[in-house]
Write a protein that binds this DNA or RNA. Structure first.
Lengths: 119, 119
DNA sequence: CAGGATCCGTATTGATACTG
DNA sequence: CAGTATCAATACGGATCCTG
């Protein structure tokens, strides 16, 4: 099972430019917020608070560029823009779930280790 | 299966301070390098090149603080220090493998999406 | 060998104010 | 509503030199 880990697996991956943004502060959270269907710009702002509009825009633009999200501008006034996961974006939910499972199982150990280290 | 994703799963997780360092530039790679057993400081420097000693030290210190790595100083001259994964660190290999699997399967799609976006 | 010290450039994130 | 513009703070990563 550790055999699934290729020592060279990062070779062509970590140095992609511009870099992946799944490890940044907000991308994974946006992914989760869009899991159950399209959301409007301001609908994303609520669960992601205190994110600022500028940062949310930047995050969504990067996700759009990478093909994780599709932006739909319905025009009109007031403006109405919806964001939805693409099929590719949806595939990211699987590794994300693995990370979340780890967190649920081991976060306490990590916190305990930190506590011991600070003593 | 998407039911495994809890909307609040990031609630107490992403705002831990100091932050998790698995998403930084080097931690995941160090994890892989230590997968097959203990390695010395300079042994890590080779596969991780062009990492600098300072950055490698910082990465290892953070991993040690979080309980992912155990540092063993064998003393003597010349110095000899070994780093090994702890049981907790080893558990991280599982979600990491999921991320690697995603990369192997979908990296091409991501690159294609970027290519289309830049056109 | 295994680092520590110092200096530095850049990317990321954020606060605030403003616009079509 | 859905952003953009501007400015500021900081954290991360890196280069270079030094030491027990």
């Amino acid at each position: 099972m550790t055999g699934a880990l290729d020592p060279d697996m990062f070779a062509g991956c970590a140095d992609v430019d511009p870099p992946f943004r799944v490890g940044d502060k907000w991308t994974a959270k946006v992914l989760v917020c869009l899991r159950d269907g399209p959301r409007r710009f301001s609908e994303l702002g609520v669960p992601l608070r205190p994110i600022t509009p500028k940062v949310l825009t930047g995050t969504l633009r990067a996700m759009e560029r990478d093909g994780f999200v599709r932006r739909t501008d319905h025009g009109g006034m007031p403006p109405r823009v919806e964001y939805a996961l693409t099929d590719l974006g949806r595939t990211l939910l699987t590794p994300l779930a693995a990370a979340c499972a780890w967190s649920r199982e081991h976060l306490g150990e990590l916190l305990a280790a930190r506590d011991a280290a600070s003593a």
